[in-house]
């Protein structure tokens, strides 16, 4: 047995070690990506045996005729923007605070991180219940505070539904960025801070000239990760509103799913997927280049 192995060239051994991971990855992650592009140029209802090539008809349909697509695209973009800014600012503040010498740090960290490890679909269920217009927490609180005029149909009112869902997402995602920031803050050298203090730098000065510059890589990573995470927004919308009311909380990932898997227009669903893939690539490719450059610089 060992003889056979020894007889393999080192690079062949490498390929053997690599093969299982590579094959599974190519078959079930890379191939579907190619398939979705191909599918976006064809028409298939999920029932008939053959798909038909239709050129760019699906793209034309989603861009000019689909009453939901533009709303879903807009929601995705606005959601992504908000998801990059709001939770990360809070997370940054929380991390800075947790990095100070205050009592109860570890319990506080646990509290803020706990929502992260909960299934998104459970987060959706929890918040949907809190938003219940008749018996939920929010309207209950408002009533008991004598603010019944503020009572709202949190998930049923088109104007606020998306933001109600976003608050649930916020609750879930702050802890994730917080941990990353905390790790970044650990790497800020205390000697530097002390030196700056001795030089007469105030609280703001230390932050501005020592802490912040040291955190730039962390901030980049956090921003990119939350960008990608928010493009994925699926579970929480599916669980809380299902895209409603009147498709006003629909997002691209879920609209692609709805078109393909529920309405059976696979071609259009694929076209929506491709649009979302392109948006993702706009983020991913520059980030990868930045990362590889940094890697090379470290070496």
């Amino acid at each position: 047995m060992s003889k056979v192995r020894l007889s393999l060239r080192p690079s062949t051994q490498g390929y053997v070690l690599l093969a299982p991971a590579l094959i599974v990855y190519l078959l079930f992650a890379v191939y579907p990506m190619i398939d979705v592009i191909r599918m976006s140029f064809s028409s298939w209802n999920g029932l008939s045996p053959q798909a038909k090539f239709v050129g760019v008809a699906n793209y034309r349909a989603i861009l000019t005729q689909d009453p939901v697509f533009w709303g879903a695209l807009w929601n995705t973009l606005i959601w992504t923007t908000a998801a990059v800014i709001v939770p990360n600012l809070i997370a940054f503040g929380v991390a800075l605070a947790l990095n100070q010498n205050i009592p109860g740090r570890s319990s506080l960290r646990i509290i803020f991180y706990l929502p992260v490890i909960i299934a998104s679909i459970a987060v959706a269920t929890i918040w949907k219940w809190m938003y219940d217009p008749f018996f939920g927490l929010f309207n209950g609180l408002l009533t008991s505070w004598g603010l019944s005029g503020w009572i709202m149909d949190w998930l049923g009112d088109k104007k606020i539904a998306l933001w109600s869902v976003f608050v649930a997402h916020l609750w879930q995602s702050v802890g994730f960025s917080m941990v990353l920031f905390l790790a970044g803050l650990q790497s800020v050298s205390t000697t530097l801070i002390e030196a700056a203090r001795i030089d007469g730098a105030g609280r703001w000065g230390v932050f501005r000239y020592v802490t912040l510059p040291a955190l730039v890589p962390t901030i980049t990573v956090v921003i990119v990760l939350s960008l990608i995470n928010s493009l994925k927004a699926f579970d929480i919308v599916y669980g809380m509103t299902g895209g409603g009311p009147a498709q006003s909380t629909q997002m691209l990932a879920m609209w692609a799913y709805t078109q393909s898997m529920q309405l059976g227009v696979f071609g259009r669903g694929a076209a929506v997927s491709v649009v979302l893939l392109l948006i993702t690539l706009v983020v991913v490719i520059p980030y990868m280049r930045w990362m590889f450059k940094r890697e090379d610089a470290v070496r």
Binding site: Y131, D132, P133, F134, D153, W154, L155, G156, D157, P245
Partner: peptide, 20 residues
């Protein structure tokens, strides 16, 4: 009975039972 867009049919039935 408002709000109604944020509840489902079974919740609506509950409200009906409760005389709302």
């Amino acid at each position: 009975l408002s709000p109604f867009m944020g509840i489902d049919n079974s919740q609506s039935f509950n409200l009906f039972l409760a005389g709302r």
